[in-house]
Simulated assay, not measured.
Amino acid sequence: MQFLLILVAFLLFPGAGADEIIGGREARPHSHPFMAYLLTETPMRQSFCGGFLVREDFVMTSARCWGSTMMVILGAHNISRQERTQQRIYVLRATRHPGYNEENNLNDIMLLQLENRARLNQFVRPVALPQSRIELRPGSQCTVAGWGLVSQNRRTDTLRDVQLRVQRNQVCSNLFNTYNSQKQICVGDQSDEETTFRGDTGGPLVCNNVAQGIVSYGRSIGVPPTVFTRIARFLPWINNTMRQSEYKGSPPYPL
C-alpha cells in the first residue's frame, strides 16, 4: 500500500481533487514552507488535496480530504519531481471534526497526526494559527497557494499562489444557502477571475503570516468567491486534539 501511494504521487495529475488556483502566478520556490501536498486513497479512488503544517507532527486540511491511507509531501515546489527538499511522511491518525457535515460542508476541518515528525528547516516550517476569535475585516488581503488546475482545462506541477480579499458575509450568503458566517469566511472578489478551483481543497488562507481559513468549497464554474472554514472558531478542538496525541494506544483514523 505504501509503495502504491508513493507511485501515485508521480502519476496523479494535479486537479484530481477538489479546489485549485485559477489566476495568480507561480510561487517563488519554497516561499510557503508550511504547504503540504496530501495524497489519499479510499476504497473508491486515489486523489489529492492541499494542506498545511501547523506543528512538526500535525498537518491541517479539509475534512473532505479523508482517506483510508494518507501521505503528505512537505517541502515541495514541483510536485512531479523528487526534489531534495521534499519529505514524504505517512499519516498515523486522521481526526475529522465530530460535527463535520458533508452535505452542507459545515465544520470542514481535519487534523492529520504524522507517523514521524517533520524535519524543520528553511523548506519545511509550520504556519502560525490565530490566537483569538477576532474576525477578519472585509477587504483584508490574504494569500492562498496550491497545485493543480490554472484554468478549466490547464494543469501545472508547480505551486502557485494568489492574493485574495475577504468579502462581506452577505456576498456568500446570497450565493450559498448553507453559508455560516460564524464558522466560515467569504473570500474573493466577484469582479476578478482569480479564485480557487479543482485540486486545492484543504489549503490555507494566510493573512499577515497567520492561517485564518481552510479552502472548503466554491462555485462549480470556477469563479469567486470561495468559502473557507474559519480556523479561529475551532481553536479549542484543535488544541485538545493535538494535546491528546501525547497519549498512546488510540487506534488510527478515528471517525
Rank of each mutant, 00 (worst) to 15 (best):
G213L: 08
G213F: 05
G213I: 10
G213E: 10
G213R: 06
I214M: 10
V215M: 07
V215Y: 06
S216C: 08
S216T: 11
S216I: 12
S216Y: 10
S216K: 08
S216M: 07
Y217K: 12
Y217P: 12
Y217C: 11
G218W: 13
G218Y: 13
R219F: 01
R219W: 04
R219H: 09
S220H: 13
I221W: 12
I221N: 15
I221G: 02
I221H: 14
I221S: 11
G222V: 04
V223P: 08
V223K: 15
V223T: 15
P224C: 12
P224D: 12
P225F: 13
P225C: 13
T226G: 11
V227N: 07
V227A: 08
V227T: 11
V227G: 08
V227E: 02
F228H: 10
T229F: 00
T229D: 01
T229Q: 01
T229M: 01
R230A: 01
A232F: 02
A232D: 01
A232V: 01
R233L: 00
F234H: 03
F234L: 02
L235G: 01
L235F: 01
L235W: 01
P236N: 04
P236K: 01
P236S: 05
P236R: 02
W237N: 06
W237T: 02
I238E: 09
I238K: 12
I238H: 10
N239D: 15
N239C: 03
N239P: 00
N239V: 10
N239Q: 15
N239L: 14
N240A: 15
N240K: 14
N240E: 15
T241F: 10
M242R: 03
M242H: 01
R243I: 00
R243T: 08
R243L: 11
Q244N: 13
Q244S: 12
Q244C: 04
S245T: 00
S245C: 03
E246C: 01
Y247A: 03
Y247H: 08
Y247E: 03
K248A: 09
K248H: 09
K248T: 13
K248C: 07
K248E: 06
G249I: 09
G249L: 07
G249E: 09
S250L: 10
P251N: 07
P252C: 06
P252M: 07
P252R: 05
P252S: 07
Y253F: 15
Y253C: 11
P254D: 05
P254L: 04
P254S: 03
P254I: 04
